[in-house]
Simulated scan of single mutants.
Amino acid sequence: MALVTLSGYPSSGKTRRAIQLKEHLDRRVADPSCNCPAQKVVVLSDDTLNIDRSSYNDSRSEKPARAALFAAIQRQMGPDTILIVDALNYIKGFRYQLYCAARELKLRTCTVYVVATAELCQRWNAERTDDRGYRAETLGNLVARYEEPSSMVRWDSPLFTVPWSESDVPIELIWKTITEGNVKPPNVGTQAVPKAPSDALHTLEQVSTSVVRAILTEQGASGMSGGPVTFRLTETVKPQGRLPARTLTLSELQRMKRQFVTLQKKAITLGTVEKGMIDWSEERVAQKFVDYLEENLKA
């Protein structure tokens, strides 16, 4: 249903805001008068995923930690879930990645920017007694590299800024956004590209070979001398085309077949079908090969 991304300095109070937000949302979802599709509110954080704060000490350990968080987010996102991501989310590229994943599933999104000064965050981090604090050096580096959310970019918008001095989150505005806000459809950048079927290569080889055999058979039986022709490969596969007014040799047809197969193989090897525009059925492959012959055989 919705993705709520929290962002802010380390030890800025994001978890406190996530708890407040979950309590509000839980009550609203449980209300009998609520007609939204949400059935549960889920909070994902470094703590729920057992990601240690030391993971942020260097980039080598941070990357797999962020990948684990993103994988967990993808598993939890769904039409019946309000997902709250209580993590640093300090890199705008990562927030954009979350936005794209949510948009692909047609979920509403918003960002909650938890604001506190660097001095306050350092003090609160030093006062922690739960072994979940950051090293002073790590905290300083994360603050220096923090990329602040902006309401001017689509992946951070709608953006709700919550200063440390506020006692609660703007639940009314957030609730309206995640229940009534516009659902942006997936675009080219977020849509999954359809993959070729597993038997596409087999179909390509088998059908193109059948077309070559049909041409040679027709030439031998009727002395075909070019012009419009229909090849009856099966009851349903009957490609039509126009061939040159001369006898086609086996070697020439085999060469054209290899060229055709090589051209089509690229889409299969890359796992794509030209954004879904290629039909890998026997009928379509046969017609495509006959069209290729018509265009490339010399008269």
Rank of each mutant, 00 (worst) to 15 (best):
S225Y: 10
E252Y: 05
V211Q: 00
T230A: 09
L250G: 09
Q254K: 13
Q219V: 03
P228N: 05
G227K: 05
P244M: 09
E235L: 09
P239M: 01
M224T: 13
T203Q: 04
A214P: 00
T247W: 10
L250F: 05
S208H: 03
Q219I: 01
R232A: 13
S225Q: 15
P228L: 03
E252T: 05
K238Q: 14
S222Y: 14
V237Q: 03
P244K: 07
E235K: 07
T230E: 12
E205Q: 14
L253R: 02
R242K: 11
S251P: 00
A221P: 02
A221W: 04
S210G: 04
S251C: 08
T249V: 07
E235A: 14
S210Q: 12
I215N: 02
E205A: 08
V237I: 15
T234D: 03
R232W: 10
T249R: 10
R246P: 08
R232E: 12
S225I: 12
S225H: 14
Q219A: 03
G220L: 08
T249P: 06
L204M: 06
P244S: 08
T249D: 10
T236S: 13
R246T: 10
S251M: 09
T217P: 04
L201R: 15
M224V: 14
A214Y: 04
G227F: 04
